[in-house]
Amino acid sequence: MATKAVCVLKGDGPVQGIINFEQKESNGPVKVWGSIKGLTEGLHGFHVHEFGDNTAGCTSAGPHFNPLSRKHGGPKDEERHVGDLGNVTADKDGVADVSIEDSVISLSGDHCIIGRTLVVHEKADDLGKGGNEESTKTGNAGSRLACGVIGIAQ
């Protein structure tokens, strides 16, 4: 089992970053940390998408990683996509320092995120509470600013 993974985020604009993942036990939580720069100040949706395909930019990554066919939600919700990591918060300089621990994603097994795409979005994720159909699919997080395929790390 891989215990570490990394993702280099890039987009068409100024947004870029490096996100690290570490899972010490196969059924334990995954620590997610790193930094994203070039964002507007505020909240930005942060999700693992189904495919590791960036051939047409971030759009070819498909929908959120959702092997259990659930509705979109927040990272602490029972009803959520596996890939729903909530929001990252950018400061006035456009930098989001990421520090998350998640017990639904994994670096092995059915919820493995390796080979899938991590995406940072234009807007805040409403965590499935926006009151419309799009909220239950995407959290109304808007366009995909930057993305990268999650790969095994040393």
Rank of each mutant, 00 (worst) to 15 (best):
A2H: 12
A2R: 05
T3I: 07
T3V: 12
T3P: 04
T3A: 12
T3Q: 06
K4Q: 08
V6G: 02
V6P: 04
V6D: 09
V6Y: 12
C7W: 02
C7T: 06
V8R: 13
L9I: 11
K10P: 01
K10G: 13
G11Y: 01
G11T: 04
G11H: 00
V15D: 04
V15C: 08
Q16N: 12
I18K: 15
N20C: 07
N20I: 08
N20S: 10
F21K: 05
E22N: 05
K24Q: 10
K24N: 14
E25T: 15
S26R: 13
S26A: 09
S26W: 11
N27Q: 15
N27P: 14
V30G: 04
K31N: 13
K31E: 01
K31G: 03
V32D: 02
V32P: 02
G34D: 02
S35F: 15
S35L: 13
I36F: 00
K37I: 14
K37A: 09
K37D: 13
K37T: 14
K37Y: 07
G38A: 05
G38K: 02
G38Q: 03
L39R: 00
T40M: 11
T40R: 12
E41G: 05
G42R: 01
G42V: 09
G42W: 01
G42K: 02
L43N: 04
H44V: 01
G45D: 03
G45W: 03
G45Q: 02
F46I: 09
V48W: 00
H49P: 04
F51T: 05
D53E: 10
A56H: 07
A56K: 12
A56L: 08
A56P: 06
G57T: 13
T59S: 15
T59L: 13
A61K: 12
G62L: 09
H64S: 07
F65D: 11
F65N: 05
F65V: 07
N66H: 03
P67T: 06
S69I: 15
R70N: 12
R70I: 14
R70V: 02
R70E: 04
H72F: 08
H72P: 08
H72R: 05
H72W: 03
G74C: 02
P75L: 14
K76F: 14
K76N: 14
D77T: 14
D77L: 13
E79V: 10
R80L: 05
R80C: 06
V82F: 11
V82R: 03
G83P: 04
D84W: 03
G86N: 00
G86L: 01
N87C: 09
N87M: 08
N87Q: 04
N87Y: 13
V88H: 01
V88Y: 03
T89Q: 04
A90S: 12
A90R: 00
D91F: 05
D91V: 03
D91H: 11
K92H: 06
K92L: 10
K92G: 12
K92T: 09
D93I: 06
V95A: 07
D97R: 12
D97I: 05
V98Y: 01
V98A: 05
V98Q: 01
I100S: 05
I100A: 05
E101G: 04
D102E: 04
D102R: 01
S103R: 12
V104T: 13
V104M: 13
I105A: 03
S106W: 04
L107I: 10
L107W: 02
S108A: 07
D110K: 10
D110G: 10
D110F: 11
H111R: 11
H111A: 13
C112D: 04
I113D: 03
I113H: 01
I114H: 00
I114C: 04
I114R: 01
G115P: 00
G115M: 00
R116S: 05
T117I: 13
L118V: 08
V119W: 03
V119G: 06
V120R: 03
V120I: 11
V120Q: 00
H121Q: 09
H121D: 12
H121P: 04
E122I: 01
A124W: 14
D125R: 07
D126Q: 07
D126H: 12
D126G: 10
D126T: 06
L127T: 12
L127E: 12
L127H: 04
L127P: 06
L127C: 11
L127R: 07
L127V: 12
G128I: 04
G128S: 10
K129D: 15
G130P: 14
G130C: 12
G130D: 09
G130N: 08
N132Y: 08
N132P: 08
E133M: 05
E133S: 14
S135G: 07
T136I: 15
T136S: 14
G139T: 06
A141I: 06
A141E: 05
S143T: 14
R144G: 13
L145R: 09
L145Y: 10
A146D: 05
A146F: 01
A146Y: 02
C147N: 04
C147K: 05
G148Q: 00
I150Q: 00
I152V: 13
I152A: 05
A153T: 07
A153M: 05
